[in-house]
Design a protein around this nucleic acid. Structure first.
Length: 631
RNA sequence: GGCUCCGUAGCUUAAUGGAUAGAGCAUCUGACUACGGAUCAGAAGGUUAGAGGUUCGAGUCCUCUCGGAGUCACCA
């Protein structure tokens, strides 16, 4: 199957790019031969499948009507025209309406030279535009888990890709640092913590807080079970039980109500929340202390994942926002007020429902905050685009949010984008906190590093490397495996995460790609050591198919980055990396490099390897994956 | 039930409407007395859930059916 190429836009690529040369030439051929103007950008140019002769193929079918000829006849005519007019074309052939073109070695030589010389190959010039990417956005009551990891890797990778195509990127997260959840952890620690701290217990500080959250849930369960057997509990059962309902079912349904009206711990949480909202100094101090522990822990995890943020927003500062915008919306008749005083937006004409935007008591809901935050951020940052990396369970929320902001006439509304991704599930199904099946981020990271260490020890390939360097390389391999495993899947797709496969180091994996880089690194070190002169590369004749595959892939790289940026899809980069590494391994296997027949071939292959290494490092960097020197 | 998304080999997955649906894992068979075997080659494995339609051409677009997920909170 041929690889599809982007319809390149001329202003991104100089005329030295062979694909745009071909597109323009074909358009000209159609105009000259058949008298009809054609948009060069719409000319379909693909890489030629390996079982045909040629480097690129033009799809002729779209022109047969204009040409009033059979596909093969038109293809032959256009082929002859191209060969005569385009010096880069060495030969052509026609198969079933496809025009296969062979590109001259001189072109590829020139391409390789310029690629090796260009440190920014694949990147676009700075375009002066700003874009914000919001990702991670954790709650502060428990540590990060596998779901966050996908979010973080996707978000981070998008920031790198957008920077590569010229944007200034503001990396942000909204920290959900207030609300019932953190109050549960606070109550739990006050009630059962006995003054313990992360330091006194030797536990990573976000896990420490998370443990008290879990403990709270456990205690509340115990309290509820005990209450059910009290006289009060039995009285409620008798009074409110539906006919024929089993006591177990009743108590299951009744849990929320019980928590709000009968539970001692529940009352403590509500009180805590109220005190927090009243700015009670003691409560605020506790809140700050425990959140501080959580941030300290998050920071470590972010470091392990290799990500950082430019700007943090805290929900405690933003949760009251959005009331102004509601007022304005009311004045503009975008919103309306119901009898009870609550304010709504009616989106039924757009296929959505009515949605409350402000409660009758004047307090905010989720979407109020989000409208307010969007407005505030635009005032602060003035970006052209705002990307929200949030799981697809919130698709509807973002559709409503964006639609509301559009109707309010917000100037940035058309630049909003929800980068929606599928939830991560385990082979056993969805992760559930209550069932303890949540995969913890730190545990997972530790596990992949452990396994990479085992594998490396078996191979024993790292003699003469310092311990520190060994550890560093191990970390890169392990994180490469984990990150690639997650990013290679299309964001929209729900992904099944098999912990065992995620640490595979063979096949379609990060380490497979890193290994090709390590091989290249070995070659280049030898070039350095032996002071090998690579200038003879340009004398090389007769490029081999294994070499051509690499050249074509390298040539495609800038277009792939652009496509990934436009689609907000890092998996495109991951697939590109794998294909390039695969071609390189094959090249390595089939052809001699240092023992090549001629000095020119040796130099050419070394130069080619250098270019491949450079592009691999660059592309994997866009995924947040670092390359080890040895492994 | 309404809306949205998804269904590709045993499993995990790829494919701007273009050629014989491409990989990896697992299974089986092979490969340099080394430029590093975390590699390479080969075999086997598919009615792209099913049925219609549009098109020169459909995994991809349209309609319907079946199956799965999400959502439809004055939670976030």
């Amino acid at each position: 199957m041929s690889r599809k190429l982007l319809l390149l836009r001329p202003y991104f690529f100089p005329m030295s790019n062979i694909v745009s040369i071909l597109q323009n030439a074909v358009a000209k051929a159609v105009t000259d031969l058949y008298g009809e103007a054609t948009d060069p950008a719409k000319v379909q140019v693909n890489t030629t499948p390996s079982d045909f002769t040629g480097d690129y193929s033009v799809v002729i079918f779209p022109f047969v009507k204009i040409a009033k000829k059979a596909p093969d006849a038109a293809a032959a005519e256009i082929g002859a025209f191209l060969q005569e007019k385009v010096s880069e074309i060495r030969a052509y052939n026609v198969v079933k309406g496809f025009l296969n073109l062979e590109i001259s070695d001189a072109y590829w030589q020139q391409f390789l030279n310029s690629t090796v010389a260009n440190p920014d190959y694949g990147r676009q010039p700075v375009n002066g535009k700003k874009v914000m990417v919001e990702f991670s956005s954790p709650n502060t009551n428990k540590p990060l888990h596998l779901g966050h990891i996908r979010n973080i890797l996707l978000g981070w990778s998008c920031t790198q890709i957008l920077e590569a195509v010229g944007y200034e990127v503001v990396k942000t997260q909204i920290v959900n640092d207030r609300g019932v959840a953190i109050c549960k952890s606070m109550v739990s620690w006050l009630s059962f913590g006995a003054g313990k701290t992360p330091a006194s217990e030797g536990i990573k500080s976000d896990h420490f807080v998370g443990d008290y959250y879990v403990l709270f849930e456990q205690k509340i369960k115990e309290e509820y079970a005990a209450w059910q057997n009290t006289a009060a509990g039995q009285a409620v059962l008798v009074e409110k039980q539906k006919p024929g309902q089993a006591p177990g079912d009743f108590f299951k349904d009744f849990k929320n109500k019980w928590f709000n009206e009968y539970s001692v711990l529940g009352a403590a949480v509500r009180e805590m929340l109220l005190k927090w909202e009243d700015h009670d100094p003691e409560t605020l101090a506790l809140w700050q202390k425990m959140n501080g522990w959580v941030y300290e822990g998050f920071e470590k995890t972010y470091q392990d994942l290799g990500v950082k943020f430019d700007k943090l927003y805290y929900e405690s500062n933003t949760y009251l926002l959005g009331k102004d915008i509601v007022e304005q919306g009311l004045a503009k008749n975008v919103f309306f007020k119901k009898e009870d005083g609550s304010i709504w937006i009616d989106l039924t004409d757009a296929g959505y429902d009515q949605k409350v935007v402000l409660r009758a008591d004047g307090t905010s809901v989720y979407i109020t905050q989000d409208m307010g935050t969007a407005q505030m951020r635009h005032e602060e940052l003035g970006c052209e685009r705002y990307i929200y990396v949030v799981a697809d369970e919130q698709n509807y929320h973002f559709q409503v949010l964006f639609e509301a902001l559009k109707r309010l006439g917000e100037p940035y509304a058309n630049g909003l984008f929800h980068l929606s991704y599928g939830l991560v599930e385990l082979p056993t199904g969805r992760m559930k906190t209550r069932e303890g099946t949540v995969v913890d981020a730190d545990d997972l990271i530790a596990e992949v590093i452990r396994i990479a260490g085992e594998q490396s020890a078996e191979r024993g390939e790292t003699e003469g490397v310092s311990e520190a360097e060994k550890q560093e390389n191990l970390r890169k391999v392990a994180m490469g495996a984990l990150k690639f495993f997650i990013i290679k899947v299309h964001p929209k797709r729900k992904m099944i995460f098999n912990p065992e496969e995620s640490v595979d180091l063979q096949g379609q994996t990060g380490p497979y790609i890193q290994y090709s880089f390590v091989r290249i690194n070995g070659l280049l070190q030898r070039v350095e050591r032996e002071q090998i002169d690579l200038s003879k590369a340009s004398e090389y004749q007769q490029i081999m198919p294994q070499e051509k595959d690499l050249l074509v892939a390298l040539h495609d790289y800038p277009a792939v980055v652009l496509q990934a940026a436009e689609a907000y899809d890092p998996s495109l980069i991951a697939n590109f990396c794998y294909a390039l590494a695969k071609s390189y391994h094959r090249f390595w296997h089939d052809l001699s490099i240092f023992n090549a027949d001629t000095a020119a071939a040796k130099a050419f292959r070394l130069q080619l390897s250098r270019a491949v290494g450079k592009v691999l490092q660059s592309a994997m960097g866009l995924l947040g994956v670092e390359m080890p020197n040895r492994m």
